[in-house]
Amino acid sequence: MASLIPCPHCGKRPKEEFTVKGAVLDRPAADATPNAWMDYVYLRDNPRGRYDEYWHHTSGCRRWLVITRDTATHEIEASRDAALARE
């Protein structure tokens, strides 16, 4: 298991400090079709390999992070602050 998660603010921390939210997806426009919203809310690819996920450092700095993780090997390629990276 990927037990040490590199937080860009706190350094390496155990996964118990984090909450996983799931895949990083682009939010559809407010007036997108119901099908587009259905996809966004419910349907997931479950890929094998490289995967962008939202993680919340719940018991640490309380920031939302984007973690790039390999679902097969659990290797973590990158981690960044979800909000600060967008600016």
Binding site: C10, R13, P14, E17, T58, S59
Partner: peptide
């Protein structure tokens, strides 16, 4: 790694 004056939030057991 944790010099004088440094602080951070973590869990001790299950308590933040």
């Amino acid at each position: 790694q944790f010099p004088l004056g440094h602080s951070t939030t973590s869990v001790i057991g299950h308590i933040a």
